[in-house]
Simulated scan of single mutants.
Amino acid sequence: MKRETQNILLVLLGGALLKIGFTGAYLNYVKPSFQWMVLATGAVMVLLALFAIARDLKKHVRGAAADGDAHEHAHGRSSWMLMLPVLAIFLIAPPALGSDSVTRNDGRSVAQSERKTGGAKFDPLPPGDVVPITMTDFVTRSAWDDANTLNDRTVRMSGFIVRDKNSTLMARLVMGCCAADATPVRVRLEGDPSASGYAVDSWVEVTGRIQPGTATEANSYTPSLTVTSIKQIPIPEMPYE
């Protein structure tokens, strides 16, 4: 690869990291605490590229002979193709993982990794007619809560729509450090036929009550929720839990 191509790749890749770092798009790939790493890496790459470009300009080396130039031109075209993925990241940042990642997950769930056997004690849910709750907390409680704190309580949570054969599920991906290790949590939506009308990957806010005993090892700890209300919402700034 020619030095000019290397330098431009560094500028574009570093610029892409700075762009997603400042705009918040980095949250599609890593946890919020990693923002400074994304920005620092992008800044270092841009500075290295600018230093190399300045050094090459000072040298101001002329091209090789005419026959050598033709060879370099042919070789350079293949090198420029390497810039396409970088340009794609810079111009169109890929979205967060969605339903495809959930359906290809072989049934793994956060609840399975939290505890394999036995129960657990959870803090009581706060008072109120409707309790806001994360999907991770809801699914983990449904699988392991000895006190059954979810029973007879109306909860509100958000996620994206997933289709599982003839069922409609709401899911969320839980990130350990980055999108590569994200593990899903799922809730089966029942009781409201309108839930099936939402497109896959649509983000929704759902209110409802758990159907006790529906989260089992056989269904990868996927509880069923009797839906009392559902509405579409914008994609949240932080799509992972």
Rank of each mutant, 00 (worst) to 15 (best):
N105V: 05
Y29F: 15
K58S: 09
L39W: 02
H60N: 14
L47N: 07
G98W: 03
M81Y: 10
I89K: 01
A111H: 01
V46N: 01
L27A: 05
V61P: 02
A88R: 02
Q35F: 03
A74F: 08
A70Y: 12
M37V: 15
V110L: 13
V38T: 05
H60W: 10
M83N: 10
A40S: 13
D69C: 13
I53C: 07
I20Y: 05
G98T: 01
L47R: 07
V38P: 01
K31D: 07
L82P: 06
A88P: 01
V30P: 03
R104M: 12
L91D: 04
E72C: 09
H75Y: 09
R108L: 11
L50E: 00
M37F: 12
A64R: 12
P32D: 08
L91M: 14
V102M: 04
E114F: 15
Q35A: 10
R108T: 14
T41V: 13
L57P: 03
G21V: 00
A66S: 14
S109V: 01
F90D: 04
A52D: 08
L48F: 11
R55P: 04
M83H: 08
L27V: 05
Y26P: 00
P94N: 09
D100W: 06
F90K: 03
D67A: 15
V44H: 09
I53K: 01
V86K: 03
F34S: 08
P32C: 08
L47K: 06
Q112W: 02
K58N: 08
A40I: 01
G63T: 10
V30W: 01
F22P: 05
D67G: 10
V110E: 00
L39G: 06
G63M: 08
A70R: 15
R115T: 03
L48Y: 07
E114H: 13
R55V: 07
A25F: 04
G76R: 09
Q112N: 08
A54Q: 08
A96P: 00
L57Q: 13
S78L: 13
R108A: 15
T23C: 12
V61K: 15
V110I: 11
K59P: 01
I92M: 10
A88M: 07
L47D: 00
A93N: 14
V46C: 15
M83E: 07
H60L: 12
G98D: 05
R104N: 15
S101A: 14
P94H: 09
A111P: 02
P94K: 06
L87S: 09
V110F: 05
H73M: 13
S101W: 08
D69F: 11
